[in-house]
Simulated scan of single mutants.
Amino acid sequence: MTPRRLIAAADRRLRGRVGARSRGAIERGFTLIELLVCLAILGFLASLALPMAEMTVQREKERELKRALWEIRDALDAYRAAREAGAVLGPGDRPPYPATLQDLTQEVVDARADRQGQTMRFLRRVPRDPFAEPGLPAEQTWGLRGYQSDADNPQPGPEVYDVYSKSTAVGLNGVPLKQW
């Protein structure tokens, strides 16, 4: 081969390598348009997921509300049963329910003869309404219904017959939380 041909062949090989390198670098990267399309897709998916996350938080708060209502109502029923059994003493002319929710957390001496010296407690602590303002004490987060009060228009009385949420929100089932 002549020197001219050797130089031309080497030149072609060299150009081929440089071109291959530069073409490979371009093929490995992303264009601005590809990145914008990816961001748009991610934004759309995030906008779909946000309402589902809010609904999950609402559903969990509703579960907490149901548990708290069951816990308080069970304690009220246990207090009434203890009063009727003579374990908790109180005025005979009043309904057998506690005067406040805090009474359910106080230790009470069992008044029955066969259990002298034993104590009982109906709640460890008053659970809070998850829909209430965070700064309020747990006892103040609940609406109280007295024994003589109507279920459709609950009013407080000298005793706590039932509790309800003070929240004006409506549950996912369409029922206002006050009616739970």
Rank of each mutant, 00 (worst) to 15 (best):
T141E: 05
Q140P: 00
L101V: 07
R94P: 05
Q140F: 02
A132Q: 10
P98A: 06
Y97G: 04
A99F: 06
E133Y: 07
R128A: 05
T105C: 03
M120R: 13
D103K: 07
E133C: 03
G117L: 03
R94Y: 07
G117P: 06
Q102F: 07
R124Y: 02
V108M: 03
Q140R: 13
L136K: 12
V109E: 14
G92Y: 04
D110C: 05
R94A: 14
L123N: 06
R121F: 00
A113D: 06
E139M: 11
A113H: 02
D110W: 03
E133N: 08
Q140E: 12
P134H: 06
A138H: 12
L101P: 04
F131E: 01
R121P: 01
D103T: 15
Q106C: 08
P98R: 09
G92S: 14
E139R: 15
D110V: 01
V108K: 08
R112I: 03
A113N: 02
L123Q: 07
A113R: 05
Q118C: 00
A138R: 14
P95N: 03
R125K: 13
P134M: 08
A111D: 10
Q118H: 04
M120Q: 11
P127Q: 11
L101N: 08
P137A: 12
A99R: 14
V109Q: 12
G92V: 13
R128Q: 06
F131Q: 12
D129G: 09
Y97I: 10
D93S: 08
Q118E: 10
R124A: 10
D103Q: 15
P127G: 07
A113Y: 02
D103P: 01
D93N: 14
A138M: 11
A111N: 10
Q106D: 12
D110Y: 01
